[in-house]
Amino acid sequence: MIRKKVCMLGAFSVGKTSLISRYVKSLFSEKYLTTVGVKIEKKTLELNGETIQLMIWDLAGEDDFTQINMSYLRGAAGYILVVDPTRPATFQVARDVLDKVKESNMATPTVVALNKADLKDDWQVDEACLAALREQGCETIETSAKSGEGVEAIFERLTLNMMQ
């Protein structure tokens, strides 16, 4: 059994919690976990004949990610960096977060979720920021926590990257 810690990153209200909820079946009550400030979910998946268990960490509440506590990220094998293109400002937050994270963990696989794909008509993609993120080695996948589009895909993608 291989276990991996995965962290959800991104500005508040981009859909981090929604993505996890869509991906896993929740075990712990929201209330209990908010007390500690972090929400952890578990998802077991089979990939290339191997069983991998993801422990997905998500910050509870609406934390300001610019003041992210680094202990939360400690030991993470991969990140899902969520952006809400309906709010272009979240691209910049993603860049800042990524910079901060890469300070300590240069090589940690990171996949960017362009979330709320169901609202694509309202998207205002900050192309400059997006290019910068890609330059840092991040793949991007369009997701929608609402429709489920790309949700499995993004976690599998990240897992594949982590396993290399």
Partner: peptide, 26 residues
């Protein structure tokens, strides 16, 4: 320590934790 991942777990016949992985992470 760093990842909060469970390395190994042993229990009496009737363990108390529902989910050792979650327990470790939490």
């Amino acid at each position: 320590k760093e990842t909060g991942l469970l390395v190994h777990q042993v229990a009496q016949s009737l363990g108390v934790s529902k989910d050792a992985d979650m327990m470790s992470a939490m």
